[in-house]
Amino acid sequence: MEWLLAPPTAAAASALRGEVTAFLRRHADSPDTVDDAALIVSELLGNAVQHAGGPVWVTLDWSTDRPELVVHDLGATVDLADLPAVPDTASIRGRGLWLVSRLSPELDVVAKRGDGKRIRTVLPVRRRVEPSFDPPRRQVNPLPALDEAGPDGFGREPFLRALVVELARTAENSHGPASAEQMVAQVGATVGGQMEQEYRRAREVAGRLTPGQLAECYLRLKSAIDGDFYVISVDEDRIVLGNRRCPFGDTVRRAPALCRMTSSVFGGVAARNHGEAVVLLDERIAVGDPECRVTVLLGPAARDNPGGHHYRDGS
């Protein structure tokens, strides 16, 4: 689940804190364990709103035993090594991260290449065994902005962009976030397969695509939909790409889940040619990074990596 606080007001942070805490309490194996997690959420959201000076993106992923909370903002970064062993009790500042570091099983802060930072923490609660589907609150209007209209009204691109966002949101509201993610991933994999066939025909390529050919295929298909991807590096077991412009435009900042489309397109093509693939969305314009950075791991390198989105050849 992902949210955008823009503008990042205290009221918006309070509402989101209440929503996240209620979600944790409904699905924790013991509701009594939620208090520490709620305090962590409160501290991180409060610090981001108070000090970021710009939009704040929040992601909650409970796909494993414990939930992972990630907060992206454009404020100054901090070094966890500088946290005191014991906070200054006379000061009300600087105590939030110290408290989080004591309550959370895991905490790390990473500076973005541009402005801002990413704070990732694992919350000290566990999920009950049964699955749950809780659609997140949505305050974002996915429809095209009025200033995107031309002399004859809205064109095809803003309409189709809004259609994709609204279909994903409808699936999420009706069947839960897991269903929406599955839908976006399936669409990406299917579209990616057709684009791969077009690349093979254009380049007269047969057999398995090499890592270099995969990279060229990615650039070709993303350029066709107005992305601005470029190759950072290509090796036998991995491809690293950058991107200066998202095909979804500014809409992606209001709906970061659309990044799964890129992941499934890249991962599906790679898995069909190398058996297995993992896609790591290392940096994303959608959460305030200046550019996207995507790593695609191939074959054995994918098999040995527990993170990212995993794909296998289903043919």
Results as ranks from 00 to 15, higher is better:
residue 4 L to F: 07
residue 11 A to W: 13
residue 12 A to F: 04
residue 13 A to N: 06
residue 15 A to K: 10
residue 18 G to W: 03
residue 19 E to R: 08
residue 20 V to E: 02
residue 22 A to C: 02
residue 23 F to A: 15
residue 24 L to Q: 03
residue 24 L to H: 00
residue 26 R to N: 05
residue 26 R to D: 14
residue 29 D to M: 04
residue 29 D to C: 10
residue 30 S to G: 06
residue 31 P to A: 08
residue 31 P to V: 00
residue 35 D to N: 13
residue 35 D to F: 13
residue 36 D to A: 15
residue 40 I to F: 03
residue 42 S to K: 14
residue 44 L to C: 01
residue 44 L to M: 08
residue 49 V to C: 13
residue 49 V to F: 08
residue 53 G to P: 01
residue 54 G to V: 00
residue 55 P to C: 02
residue 56 V to Y: 01
residue 57 W to N: 00
residue 59 T to L: 12
residue 60 L to V: 09
residue 61 D to I: 05
residue 61 D to E: 10
residue 63 S to Q: 13
residue 63 S to C: 08
residue 65 D to M: 07
residue 66 R to Y: 12
residue 68 E to Q: 14
residue 76 A to V: 07
residue 76 A to L: 03
residue 80 L to Y: 06
residue 86 V to D: 13
residue 87 P to Y: 07
residue 87 P to M: 02
residue 88 D to C: 05
residue 89 T to K: 13
residue 92 I to T: 15
residue 100 V to T: 08
residue 101 S to T: 01
residue 101 S to Q: 06
residue 101 S to N: 09
residue 104 S to E: 01
residue 104 S to Y: 04
residue 111 A to D: 00
residue 111 A to C: 03
residue 111 A to L: 01
residue 111 A to N: 06
residue 117 K to W: 01
residue 117 K to H: 08
residue 117 K to F: 03
residue 121 T to W: 09
residue 124 P to E: 03
residue 124 P to R: 02
residue 126 R to S: 09
residue 130 E to F: 11
residue 132 S to A: 15
residue 135 P to I: 07
residue 144 P to R: 05
residue 148 E to L: 00
residue 152 D to C: 08
residue 152 D to A: 14
residue 153 G to V: 08
residue 158 P to C: 05
residue 161 R to L: 07
residue 167 L to I: 09
residue 168 A to D: 14
residue 169 R to K: 04
residue 170 T to M: 12
residue 171 A to D: 15
residue 174 S to H: 13
residue 175 H to M: 13
residue 183 M to I: 07
residue 186 Q to C: 10
residue 186 Q to K: 14
residue 187 V to W: 15
residue 188 G to H: 06
residue 189 A to Q: 06
residue 194 Q to H: 15
residue 195 M to E: 13
residue 197 Q to P: 11
residue 197 Q to Y: 10
residue 201 R to K: 11
residue 204 E to S: 14
residue 206 A to Q: 15
residue 210 T to S: 12
residue 212 G to N: 12
residue 212 G to V: 02
residue 215 A to F: 12
residue 216 E to I: 04
residue 216 E to T: 08
residue 218 Y to D: 12
residue 219 L to R: 12
residue 219 L to E: 09
residue 220 R to A: 15
residue 225 I to G: 06
residue 225 I to K: 09
residue 225 I to H: 09
residue 225 I to V: 12
residue 226 D to V: 06
residue 228 D to V: 01
residue 236 E to H: 12
residue 242 G to K: 09
residue 243 N to W: 04
residue 249 G to R: 02
residue 250 D to H: 10
residue 251 T to S: 11
residue 251 T to E: 15
residue 254 R to I: 00
residue 254 R to E: 11
residue 254 R to K: 14
residue 257 A to N: 11
residue 258 L to T: 06
residue 261 M to Q: 04
residue 261 M to E: 07
residue 263 S to V: 02
residue 268 G to C: 09
residue 271 A to F: 09
residue 272 R to C: 04
residue 272 R to V: 06
residue 276 E to C: 11
residue 277 A to Y: 03
residue 277 A to N: 06
residue 280 L to C: 05
residue 283 E to W: 11
residue 285 I to Q: 07
residue 289 D to G: 00
residue 292 C to P: 10
residue 294 V to Q: 15
residue 297 L to V: 01
residue 298 L to P: 02
residue 298 L to Y: 05
residue 299 G to L: 02
residue 300 P to E: 13
residue 304 D to Y: 09
residue 305 N to V: 02
residue 309 H to D: 11
residue 310 H to M: 04
residue 311 Y to R: 02
residue 315 S to Q: 14
